[in-house]
Amino acid sequence: MLDLALVVAGLALIAVGVFFDFVGAIGLLRLPNFFTRLHAATAGAIGGAVVPMIGASLVALGADYLGPARFFLAGAAFASSLLLMILAQAGSHAIARAAYLSREAPREPILHDALEEGGGG
């Protein structure tokens, strides 16, 4: 009974991750400029990668037909999700900062540029 509950919860988390993945891809394709696409890409990375990894970990804990190696799968998937939760923000921030500072992406639709005034960089 517990196995069934774990498997159903994991499959639901994987389905939520697929939804986020699709929404992130459509947002990355449809949003107008770089700094708004950053939002869609981060939603696709966190909601579309961290959540399905936790879901796969729960499925592997519940599915006993995988043999004793399923605990390895569950632990590795959970460790990957924890690592990705740190790395995705850091990578997006690094590329956004580089794009802002090097003026590679146009800064055009902007209301107030606090970083330029404060002398940051």
Binding site: L28, G44, G48, A56, V59, A88, I95
Partner: peptide, 24 residues
């Protein structure tokens, strides 16, 4: 270039999650 790198970034992270799901 930052648009392309951002898309490759999201593609790689989602492909990593896809590999985990595929091993199940």
């Amino acid at each position: 270039i930052p648009d392309r790198v951002l898309a490759v970034d999201a593609l790689g992270y989602d492909l990593a999650a896809f590999m985990v799901v595929l091993s199940v």
